[in-house]
Structures are given as C-alpha cells and as structure tokens.
C-alpha cells in the first residue's frame, strides 16, 4: 500500500467500482430486455396490423379489443387451468418426494438423480414420446398410456388426455410436472435439511410429537422455499410454449397465450396483436413476481 494508491482510493467513492463492475450487465439488460419491452409496448399500442404499414398510436385499443376474441378467452382459461395443475402438481409431488427422502434413505443419490434428470432434457427431444403416451384413442384402439391402463385392467382411467374438451390442459401439465417436480424436490430437500436439528430436538424435548414438530417447526421453515418454487414454476407456466408446441402443435384445443402470440406474429402477420399478447404475458408475470420481489426485499431488510 503506497501513499499514492491510498489517496486514489480515498478520492474514489467506495461504491463506484461496484457500479462499474455491474455496468456491462446493466447496459446489456437495458438494451436486450427493456429495449425489447419498449419496442413491444410501442407496437402493442399501435395499429400496425401487418408487416408493411408503419402503424400509428391507438392507445389501449388492442388491449381492450382482444377480450372480444373467443380464442383469447379460451387461451386465458387454458393458461389458468394449466398453471393451477402444473404449479400445484409439481409442488405437491416435489414436496412429497422430498418428504420421503428427508430423513435419508438408502440410494438417495440415485433417487435424486433420477427425479432431477427430466430437467436436463428439452421438449424438442421428448415431445414425440409424450404425444404417443397421451394418445387420445380409448378402448380397443387405445395406444400409449391408455393401452397401459387397459393392460393393467384399469380401463376406467382411460381418457382423452389433452384432447379432453374440459380438462385437456390438465393433461398437458403432466409432462411439465414430470420435468420440474425433481427441481422442486431438490428445493424442498434443501429446505428440510436447512432446519437445524437442534430446533427439532428442542421441540421434542418440549413434548411435541413428530407431527407437531413437523407442523410447527419444519413447515414454517419451508415457507421461503415454497414461495421461491411457486415463483419459478409460475413464470415457467405463464410462458409455456415449447412443451405444447412439441406435444400438440398449434391447435386451438391446447391454445395458450404464448402460442396465440406465435400464430399472431408469424402466421397471421399481425405484429400489434402479437405484441399485445406479449404485453399481457409480461404483465401477468409481473403481477406474480413484483409482490414477491418486494416481500423478499423487506424480509432481507428485517434480517
């Protein structure tokens, strides 16, 4: 430490180097995320309904008019069903797997690896298999899982999967649950193991039975993990695209906003409509995420 460097450091505010180190990321995100979002909302607020015209500002017209479209309403309903089943299913299954493994079990590493591996595979790779498995034919002509049910004598379980007019989107959530529940399992397992053993011990000493220990000591500890999982699953769910395209294609029967957006932009060549849908997707994600971010920031401050 020479006197000179010390004086330079004294002149420079302590926070400046940090800001400089982060600045490339800030610039990149500003351009690639906020630039794109800005572009998107500019188009969404215009009447640029084909690729040639320039488009002029029309305010919220597109955002309002889209609610008159049957397809839009249907896709929103689908997205809600999908989100509820997928988020709920992955949370419950992931929690259950973690619960089973929590206290350690023979071959835990192997189990964990198998539950986690679906996360490593893209739906470009597994889409066809899921299409086969969830084939909608029943009875004599059943293939895929329906054929398996038939073989096992569980014919009553046969159904139309994603072609079911009412609950098809619930079937669509199955591959997504398959893919993400291992990750939720890992999160919960980390959560379980993060509960200090002394706390459990203390509760037992105080006369709690195992269930009470679970209810009053462990569950509260899992709350942040649950919330984090909820957020990650929720935003995956609202943006779901690859999975549905690779399993069902772009059919109305499994339409969701992200697919509608794709057809609006690339098939119908209606940039304004596509941007409007993208806008709604961003907003719905924001509704999910912003309160969480605020809550998280507060929690950290409290600490």
């Amino acid at each position: 430490m020479t006197a000179k460097t010390a004086s330079v450091r004294a002149r420079m505010p302590r926070w400046l180097p940090g800001l400089l180190l982060v600045s490339p990321s800030i610039v990149a995100i500003a351009v690639f995320v906020y630039g794109m979002l800005g572009w998107n909302f500019k188009v969404a607020l215009s009447d640029q309904h084909d690729e040639v015209s320039e488009g002029s500002f029309v305010g919220l017209e597109n955002f309002i008019n889209i609610w008159q479209e049957t397809r839009w309403i249907l896709s929103v309903q689908h997205a809600i069903v999908f989100t509820v089943v997928f988020v709920g299913g992955a949370l419950v299954l992931g929690w259950f797997l973690a619960f089973l493994m929590e206290k350690g079990i023979k071959g835990e590493g192997g189990f964990r690896a198998i539950y986690l591996f679906p996360m490593a595979i893209s739906f470009i790779a597994t889409g066809v298999v899921w299409r086969w498995l969830m084939n909608s034919a029943t009875g004599e002509r059943a293939v895929g899982l329906n054929a398996l049910f038939r073989f096992l004598g569980l014919d009553f379980l046969q159904w139309q999967w994603f072609r079911d007019p009412d609950w098809g989107m619930a079937a669509m959530a199955i591959p997504a649950i398959w893919q993400m529940s291992g990750y939720v399992m890992a999160l919960f397992l980390a959560g379980f193991r993060g509960v200090p053993e002394e706390l459990r011990e203390a509760a037992r000493v105080d006369g709690c039975n195992e269930w009470q220990v679970y209810r009053w000591v462990i569950l509260p500890h899992l709350r942040p993990v649950t919330l984090a999982a909820l957020i990650i699953l929720g935003h995956i769910s609202l943006k779901v695209f690859d999975l549905i395209v690779s399993v069902s294609g772009k059919q109305i029967i499994t339409d969701v906003p992200a697919i509608f957006m794709w057809t609006a932009v690339y098939d119908a060549h209606d940039p304004a409509k596509g941007a409007t849908i993208a806008g709604y997707i961003v907003l719905s994600v924001a509704i999910f995420v912003v309160p969480y971010l605020i809550w998280n920031a507060r929690r950290e401050k409290r600490k």
Binding site: I252, I253, A268
Partner: peptide
Amino acid sequence: NDAWRSAINDAVGLFLQ
C-alpha cells in the same frame, strides 16, 4: 394469404370446440 388462412384455422379450431 397468411392472415386469412390463419383466421380460417382459428375459426375451425373454435368450431371443433
């Protein structure tokens, strides 16, 4: 054209429902 074809596809898809 693409816009028309896409709208016809939507209409048929919704009709199936």
